[in-house]
């Protein structure tokens, strides 16, 4: 076995184990910490694919920002096992349906992304560098890129509005 394969197997084991532990651990803080470890191992997978930029951005955004805010909320909410929310059956159906949809999207991504990567492999250009990534995002994927930014902006404005509304009601 090559070293890359060994590293991949270890990383994959860590990813899967921590992902399952996230779901199964009783303490919400422990789940959050397992999820952080899971994110780190996914960043490791990106590094194995030689995608340095993606790996670091993944660490900054998910481990460094989102999960810290998550931990924050959980610590302040003081969740106990007794106060666990009752889940109606319809949410389970919803979860299954959304999982299937995500699978569909992922398959579509895998099928479509291959030829684009192949093009860069044949021209020998370093498609992982930030310069090429930026050019691709603002040339080939201009419209989806702008849509994503609009989506993020809408979400941001929405949160601000919601928090303002609560303040006004008080």
């Amino acid at each position: 076995m090559s070293t890359v394969l060994i590293i991949f197997c270890v990383l994959a084991a860590i990813t899967l184990a921590t992902a399952f532990l996230t779901i199964f651990s009783r303490n919400p803080i422990h789940s959050a910490i397992y999820l952080v470890i899971c994110f780190f191992s996914i960043a490791g997978h990106y590094l194995l694919l030689n995608a340095q930029f993606l790996a670091i951005v993944h660490v900054i955004v998910y481990s460094g920002a989102i999960m810290i805010l998550f931990l924050f909320t959980i610590m302040l909410m003081n969740l106990n096992e007794e106060r666990e929310v009752h889940r109606p059956r319809i949410t389970r159906v919803g979860a299954i349906v959304s999982f299937c949809l995500i699978c569909l999207v992922l398959i579509a991504i895998f099928i479509n992304s291959k030829p684009i990567v192949g093009e860069y492999v044949t021209t020998g250009e370093d498609y992982q560098s930030i310069k090429v990534l930026g050019k691709i995002l603002l040339n080939e994927y201009m419209v989806p890129f702008e849509f994503v930014s609009i989506l993020l902006l809408v979400a941001m404005i929405g949160t601000v509005l919601l928090s303002k509304k609560e303040k006004l009601q008080k």
Binding site: I29, Q52, I56, V57, I60, S63, L71, M75, I130
Partner: peptide
């Protein structure tokens, strides 16, 4: 000499918060 050295700095700094948060909790 990472291509993304400065981002690496930000990544590590942002992870540093965990030491304080986990220890404090």
């Amino acid at each position: 000499d990472l291509n993304i050295g400065l981002l690496y700095f930000f990544g590590v700094v942002s992870v540093g918060v965990y030491g304080i948060m986990i220890g404090g909790w």
